[in-house]
Amino acid sequence: MSLTHTDVEKIAALSRLSLTKDELTHFGEQLSAILDYVAMLSELDLSDAALEDQTAEHHNVTRDDIVLPSLSREDALFNAAETRDGQFFIQSILEE
C-alpha cells in the first residue's frame, strides 16, 4: 500500500493538520509502511466475528437527570487563548 501525495494531503486535511511538504513526504512513506504492515490482518478469517451482538456485560450505564453545578464563567474561560464579553473569541467564520 503506497499512499500518494494527494492521499496524504487528504488525510492531513481530514485531520486538520497543517504539514510542510517535507512532512507530507515523510509521513506518507511512514504511513505506507505501517499500512503494509497492518495488511497482515487480511490473513484472518473474520467472517464469524460477532460485533454489536448485545452481549456486552457492561451496558445501560446512565445517570439521573439531576442538575450539578457548572463552572464559574471565569473558570470556564480561564484556559482560553482569547475571550471577549464572556465568550470564546475566534477569527471570523462564514455564517452558516
Binding site: V67, L71, G86, F88
Partner: peptide
Amino acid sequence: QSKMFCGCRVVDSVEAEPNTAVCPVCL
C-alpha cells in the same frame, strides 16, 4: 433538566448569560 452527558442545567440559550451553564465535560 440537565444536559445529555453532563449535569449542567439546560438553560434558555437566548436569555442566559453566555458560558454560564458549562462544565469541563460540555467544554
